[in-house]
Design a protein around this nucleic acid. Structure first.
Lengths: 285, 285
DNA sequence: CCTATGGATGAGTTAAAATCATCTATAATC
DNA sequence: GATTATAGATGATTTTAACTCATCCATAGG
């Protein structure tokens, strides 16, 4: 297999063939025409074939030259195309995640990331579509027990959020509405609503539990109706900071859920690593 | 387009990716593992992407690495394939020519060429098929006026050949048979039979002229029947040397025909040049 | 715990590649 | 038909980069 010909010489040849000129090839490769000439005659010596017919101020490919020119041009093009896409791959960070995480966490904070790394373009897509495509970072919600330790970003802590105090909940005449999530995916652990109620001396029967399949909807509905929502602290941090929601209990309750990135520790571009580090920081803070 | 990454580094990477091992890549490229390591880390620096995940005694391609590995392997393979066919192209000389020239000139003398150049494989094909395919040397019969001067191998000289003397022709009772050629291709100049007869004080009407579309058949028929054949000296030289034919006139007559090789002076491999030089020598001697 | 393996790192050496100066052939211009 | 300019060839010299050596680190396996 080993071709004892210099790849540099092949590149010189390729450029010369493409331009039909040593001079122009030299310009393209930022060399002197002499260097091109040397390369090509060395190549011809090695292959024992002449690749160009030298006419004055004109070079013409021989049959062998034409054969090699096609192959080198195509071969190098293929390689350069790959290099170009790697470059681009590194400039752009593609992320997929749930609508909830995207809308309540990622998108609102993204401008901070962009300020820090103005050269990195982040593309966020949510929904089940292009999930786990190559070169895309998926931020998923999963069961702690089933997620590889290294892939985990956090442990989801849940709490009840609303506008009124815990006291008003206890003394309410009507059965207050609590919005909670029932995942579309049945394999995903349930939000620890009952555990939280028990811990806070409350009884599920005293409430009307209404469910959506996305936390985002629960939060939005609760804000709109000034009702309560049982939801992860991750998703409500922003709304709490804005005063739109308040945690009812001072400490949340740990769930069996976590956000994670499959293969978090391995196989990432430089910029992807920066982004992941930033998300990690964001989600833990 | 210039991506400013070293091709050597790419080759090192390609081998490392293929073997999943710096050590084996080093062996393949006859280098030290250190060199491979240097190359790859330089490549990673340049591209600002990690290409391998280094685990102990094991390297695994990243996404970017996999992308590049595919492209480099395919690209280099394409180039190496071309180089291999150029190598082979140079070992083998392919020739096409007429059945007549092949049978009466080329094939009988070929063993002399093989003795001189035992490493060069000569493939001879005759007939209209694979004519003027790339990388094939066509030896053709053409009209002098229409053939480029540089392409010409000779000028065809014609003569009448047979077993008896000119005298016996003149005094023959019956109209003797002369075999001559009528080319299938009407554009080709006719053999100068009438000019020769006139020059030798003979009259066409005194002979029966029988025609084939290939000189070879004329010659073979004449030998078989001990008849006469009007034919080029090129094709009869061997039979004359063997005593199977004799020229009737001491000097032949020049025709408007010649053997030639299109593009004789340009675009040939080393071995093709040797072969052409040998044919040139053969045909002129 | 110790050894062996595979890779990383940095300095030093060597070999390859680029340049410089010079030369040739010829196409274009006067 | 002499002159200039252009494109490439050639050989000596210099510069660059590639490879190796010595050393170090991490860990898999006995």
């Amino acid at each position: 297999m080993a071709l004892h010909v210099s790849l540099q010489a092949l590149r010189a040849f390729e450029a010369a063939a493409r331009h039909s000129s040593f001079k122009h090839a030299a310009e393209e490769l930022a060399l002197t025409p002499t260097a091109i000439s040397h390369h090509i005659s060395k190549l011809e010596d090695r292959l024992n074939v002449s690749l160009f017919i030298r006419q004055t101020r004109k070079i013409v490919l021989t049959d062998a030259g034409r054969l090699l020119a096609t192959a080198t041009t195509e071969g190098f093009t293929q390689i350069e195309t790959a290099l170009a896409s790697i470059r681009q791959l590194n400039e752009v960070v593609r992320v997929t995640t749930t609508s909830s995480f995207a809308a309540q966490v990622l998108l609102p904070e993204l401008y901070m990331f962009n300020q820090h790394y103005p050269d990195i373009v982040v593309q966020i897509a949510s929904g089940e579509l292009m999930d786990s495509q190559p070169h895309t970072i998926p931020i998923r919600l999963g069961n702690i027990k089933e997620v590889q330790a290294g892939d985990r970003l956090n442990v989801e802590h849940y709490n009840l959020f609303g506008h009124q105090s815990l006291e008003s909940l206890r003394t309410s005449d009507t059965r207050p509405v609590i919005y909670s999530t029932r995942w579309k995916n049945p394999a995903l652990c349930k939000p620890p609503l009952e555990a939280w109620l028990a811990e806070n001396g409350l009884n599920k029967a005293d409430f009307k539990i209404r469910e959506f399949d996305q936390e985002l909807f629960c939060v939005q509905q609760a804000v709109a109706e000034q009702a309560w929502v049982f939801c992860s602290e991750t998703l409500t941090r922003r709304l709490c900071a804005m005063g739109q929601l308040r945690p009812i209990s001072s400490t949340g309750i740990a769930s069996e859920l976590c956000y994670y990135i499959p293969g978090k520790t391995r196989s990432q571009t430089d910029n992807a690593k920066k982004f992941i580090a930033w998300v990690q920081e964001l989600i833990l803070s």
